[in-house]
């Protein structure tokens, strides 16, 4: 029971990270029908930037730990959001009228570019988050002790998701994002500035992704410049699992994938963990291609 609960909480923590990254994929896919392959690398940028700000820039030393982490979360989100915005402007906007495959290749190029840029700016080695950055307190719940960092990550990711959900559902701009995702031309007709909405999506998605990157660093304590591929792919699986283009779907898919993976790693085989995620994906696509929350829509002719 103890092991099961720990695995479950671990799964929820990792799932929260997947969900945050998956939101970026699913929102971009919603408005542009583009798989943003560079999203995983924006996530990596978040992790590296967070480490730099905390340690090299000395924010962790100047402020109490929690305040420092909170401040760095915000700074990372803003910076990565800016990179996402510039990425859309330079690499995707000129290709909007071209075929979708051209944009995919451009996204792959951007991904390779970012990955190597990180490698050149930092060194091609594993970076370790110093221990003092990682909260070590534990929390007792129902007679079990849980590491505080896990609960912290679960808490932050759920909070961010609730904020996003409220923004999408309750504000005018959020409604406009939904409208653009459903039908760009119709959205334009009712006076929505589609270009601005797309830019906004490229601010929100990478912002959340950057925060998720820093959370991985805090959670596992180490980062490397290639980690974006793996997390990016997992998050994309999560997005499809929940139904691509569907925001609550990405959240659900993220948590679900995290839990499945943690339990599979704990009870089946650690070595096959990654393969199991892809296996789940293939099964979902065969059984229900639109994902769990995705709506079945008729193919447009």
């Amino acid at each position: 029971m103890e092991q099961f609960l720990q695995q479950l909480l671990n799964g929820i923590a990792v799932g929260g990270i997947y969900a945050l990254v998956a939101l970026g994929y699913t929102m971009v896919y919603g408005v542009l029908k583009l798989i943003n392959f560079a999203h995983g690398d924006l996530f990596t940028i978040g992790a590296y930037l967070g480490l730099t700000l905390l340690v090299s820039a000395g924010i962790a030393g100047a402020l109490p730990l929690f305040a420092a982490i909170l401040l760095v979360f915000i700074m990372v989100a803003l910076f990565v959001a800016l990179i996402g915005f510039l990425l859309e402007r330079t690499a995707y906007r000129p290709l909007r009228s071209a075929g979708r495959l051209s944009a995919v290749v451009s996204a792959l190029g951007a991904s390779i570019f970012f990955q190597n840029a990180i490698m050149l700016i930092y060194e091609p080695r594993v970076y370790v988050f110093p221990d003092f950055l990682r909260p070590t307190f534990t929390i007792s719940l129902f007679g079990f002790t849980f590491p505080g960092i896990r609960l912290f990550i679960v808490g932050v990711s759920i909070l961010l998701m609730l904020l996003l959900w409220a923004f999408i559902q309750k504000t005018r701009v959020g409604t406009a994002i939904q409208a653009v995702a459903i039908d760009q031309d119709a959205a334009r007709l009712v006076g929505i500035n589609v270009n601005k909405i797309i830019s906004l999506v490229f601010l929100i998605g990478p912002g959340l992704g950057g925060i998720a990157g820093l959370m991985v660093g805090l959670y596992y304590g180490q980062i490397d410049f290639t980690m974006g591929w793996g997390y990016g792919l997992k998050a994309f699986i999560a997005a499809i699992l929940g139904g691509i283009g569907n925001i609550p779907g990405a959240m659900l898919g993220g948590f679900l994938l995290g839990i499945i993976e943690a339990l599979a790693a704990g009870y089946i085989s650690m070595a096959w963990k990654d393969a199991i995620a892809f296996f789940v994906l293939i099964v979902i696509l065969i059984v229900r291609p639109t994902g769990i929350l995705g709506e079945r829509t008729a193919e447009k002719l």
Partner: peptide, 17 residues
């Protein structure tokens, strides 16, 4: 590889077909 990625993006912008 940095240039490789850059070239992929530029090629697609310049000649999407």
């Amino acid at each position: 590889m940095l240039l490789f990625g850059l070239a992929m993006m530029l090629m697609m912008i310049w000649r999407p077909q």
